[in-house]
């Protein structure tokens, strides 16, 4: 390789490595700010080495699995509350509004709102998260024993008295 090319090669490589290193260091420093949401355990036990906990009144996002059997709807209104869990601690989310179609017990969700006490969040927005698995309904039923019923069908069936 001739000296001029070599010089350019070194210059370009050094420039990219330096800038890449700088961006990498920046992202590493901002790691916790890049996370979209707190998990229930992070909310209750704190984040990082210093165990920093969010303060009551703080606006935040919480993400976790909806605990089975925890969804409580207030009759004659859109008010709903449910519990979220990841690995242990449970956080309660209260919300008034229409839940996304994918919202189910056992589903991952992300809620944005205000921390009203240590384990309760008053949410202004609830988003559904889904995983990276795609399969036809028959396969899902055979492999995982999951049968997802859309809400529209669920209510029809309960009207007929097939579901308690």
């Amino acid at each position: 390789m001739n000296p001029r090319r070599q010089k350019r090669l070194v210059a370009v490589t050094a420039f990219v490595l330096l800038l890449g290193g700088a961006i990498g260091a920046m992202l590493y420093a901002l790691q916790q700010n890049i996370d979209l949401f707190y998990t229930p355990s992070q909310l209750i036990e704190g984040i990082g080495d210093k165990k920093v906990k969010p303060e009551v009144g703080q606006r935040l996002r919480i993400g976790g699995m909806v605990v089975k059997g925890s969804v409580r709807r207030v009759p004659d209104s859109l008010k709903v509350s449910f519990d979220l869990v990841d690995t242990g601690p449970i956080v309660t989310v209260e919300y008034e509004g229409i839940l996304p179609d994918l919202f189910r017990e056992g589903q991952g969700i992300v809620a944005q709102g205000v921390l009203v006490d240590k384990t309760t969040i008053l949410a202004s927005e609830v988003l559904a998260k889904h995983d990276e698995e795609y399969m036809p309904p028959e396969v899902a039923e055979a492999m995982k024993g999951i049968k997802h019923v859309p809400p529209s069908q669920l209510y029809k069936e309960s009207d007929k008295g097939q579901q308690p």
């Binding site: 890049i34 179609d101 994918l102 988003l127």
Partner: peptide, 12 residues
């Protein structure tokens, strides 16, 4: 929009 419930979110 139909699945998550939002067009956009500032996630990574």
């Amino acid at each position: 929009k139909p699945m998550w419930g939002t067009w956009w979110v500032w996630d990574a």
